[in-house]
Nucleic acid binder design. Sequence first.
DNA 1: TCGAGTAACTTGCAATTAACAAGTAAGTTG
DNA 2: CAACTTACTTGTTAATTGCAAGTTACTCGA
Lengths: 125, 125
Amino acid sequence: MAKQTESSEKFKRSSCPVASTLDIIGDKWTLLVVRDLFAGKRTYSEFQGSPEKIPTNILAERLKRLAEYEIVVKKPYQHHPVRYEYLLTAKGKDLGPVLMTMVQWGEKHLPGTKAQIIPAKEAKP
Amino acid sequence: MAKQTESSEKFKRSSCPVASTLDIIGDKWTLLVVRDLFAGKRTYSEFQGSPEKIPTNILAERLKRLAEYEIVVKKPYQHHPVRYEYLLTAKGKDLGPVLMTMVQWGEKHLPGTKAQIIPAKEAKP
DNA sequence: TCGAGTAACTTGCAATTAACAAGTAAGTTG
DNA sequence: CAACTTACTTGTTAATTGCAAGTTACTCGA
């Protein structure tokens, strides 16, 4: 788990924006977490509840990575039982179009897939 | 290398179009091959020439997968020395918007990345 | 106050996948 | 005919994933 440098400079395969983007989100799970965030999920256990059943160690690692890349921020939303929530940053919200184009491609070309209508987010109770 | 079924039905983690799309293109290399196809590359050795230096066994496997999913078609473009070219299908061309949104995200958020202007394709020599 | 429960992780492996180097087959060129 | 090229395949090692179980901190009900 050794990082290559102390700084936030990460390894890049090339200067191509597609390749560099894939270095960050190019795996089976990362964008699913981002999708869940767009769907209004905020906590570790909410992510675990998704139908794809992400392994817990992978979820933890991906959340850490997403925080390192400043796609999400982790903050406690209550103390005593300290509980954390993960929120999309502006950088993370900018992944929305990537997700949307995947939804469009999937719905057009992969039979049996169907995006859910995301209910408008309510104010926190 | 055993497939789960004889038919072209592939395993899906869920009915979510994002998850199902990621089941196909959710890795570090697949979309780079698609990017190269959009950039006008057509042959195995042209893909190998890209700056990310994809391992040859992975390139072969990904091309096979892309053909199975009908994102590309493989066809010989000359006999005698049989040489193959890979071409995007309509389904593959529909991945263009996914690539474009990644370019936009990368250029905005990943310093040092820069999309190349793709030169107009010349006639085959 | 004890025991069960919950959220958010961590740890330990086995199994799968990726990476790297080398080798192969068919055909062409000097 | 020896070297070269394209398009792969094979073998081996390294890294990553997936699954199960364990941990920590705190709450709640009997």
